[in-house]
Simulated assay, not measured.
Amino acid sequence: MRTTAPRRRARRTHRGAGAVLALVIAVAGPLAGCSADGAKPGGERGAQAAPRWNTAPASVAAVGDSITRGFDACSVLADCPEASWATGNDPQVHSLAARLLGEAEAPARSWNYAVTGSRMADLPGQLASAAAHKPDLVTVMVGSNDACRPTASSMTPVAAFRAGFEKALAGLRAASPASQVYVSSVPDLQRLWLQGKDDPMVRQIWKLGICQSMLADPVSAATGATARREQVRARVVEYNEVLREVCGKDPLCRYDGGAVFQYPFAADQLSHWDWFHPGKIGQARLAELAHRQVTSPEPPR
């Protein structure tokens, strides 16, 4: 009796240890693929789902230049923000804000911080003002004035244009992380030149100083004039590539895929005061393009 009792106690102890070991394995097993901080083996953290694009934003802020201010859309050499494609309340335009929020609600939940004459260097300040409202959507249309300079040589360098856009987006993200951004491409300035160059009255208006890098000597076919216009167009293409690349790194930024650059603005869609800025019909087309892309579940291809 004395020799067997210890062995029975030993067997009971062994079975108890096995049960504890099995429990430890069962608990630890599901955790074996993660470290204490949730990382996968090798230091790789689990992928987080990208934020989804909201196709029905409830507030809109606009930044940019004279196009978004509706310059020359209502009267000569004057802003007309009520005709802005982004936030205006003119029913003939039916702005993006009006389409998204309704004509009655849009004025209370939309803000226009665009300034006529602005360039990319001005964008960080405009976005800082827009961010104060924590808008669901911010529209950006800038770059025309970076290309529209007194001479082609004075156009904003591409590197400076990129640095300005990166700074502007970073500032917005710091101040309003959840705001979506819709970025319009820079219009094809050469296409606008083609619409008015053969009209003597238009040529006289252009002499007042509108976008001389593109519009100076509008009917000249000399090698220098042709090369200058091609240089300006090439710079616009480069600007649009910057907008696409920088915006593409932000999951809540949507570039228009070149829609505005490719849009064939006709003469009746341009301002009858300068034949360069969009008139009300042109502003309406811009609003339509933006609304189609903002409300699409997928970005433009």
Rank of each mutant, 00 (worst) to 15 (best):
M201G: 14
R52F: 06
D122M: 06
L243F: 06
S220Q: 01
V294T: 03
E105Q: 10
D188N: 06
Q212P: 09
W273C: 06
Y239S: 06
L286P: 03
A61N: 03
F165M: 09
R301S: 13
G171H: 11
D90Q: 01
A170D: 08
A152M: 10
A32L: 08
L169P: 04
G46D: 11
A62H: 05
G46S: 10
V76C: 12
A32W: 11
S110Q: 03
A234L: 07
G282F: 01
K40E: 15
N240H: 01
Y113K: 04
R233Y: 14
L101Y: 01
C211L: 03
K249L: 12
A287R: 00
T4A: 15
I67Y: 07
R11V: 11
H14G: 12
A97S: 09
P91E: 03
D65R: 07
P218M: 07
K249C: 11
Y255H: 02
V232H: 06
R12P: 08
S66C: 02
R149Q: 08
A28E: 11
G70K: 00
R69S: 08
A175G: 10
R9I: 15
A106T: 09
L137M: 03
R228H: 14
P30M: 00
V260Q: 06
L243Q: 00
L100K: 03
L208A: 11
L243E: 05
F165R: 02
K249T: 14
A108S: 12
N145R: 04
R69L: 02
E166M: 04
C253F: 09
V60T: 05
A170G: 10
A163M: 09
S271C: 02
A174M: 10
A10I: 14
L270D: 06
S176A: 06
S144F: 10
T226M: 13
A86T: 07
R45C: 09
L127I: 08
H291Y: 10
Q48V: 14
A62L: 04
P30R: 04
L21V: 08
Y113P: 07
A131V: 01
S271Q: 02
S110N: 05
H14S: 15
Y255D: 04
A39N: 07
E82Q: 12
L77F: 15
G258K: 01
L172T: 00
Q283T: 08
G117D: 04
A266S: 15
R285A: 11
P51V: 03
R229N: 09
V27F: 09
D72L: 12
L100Y: 00
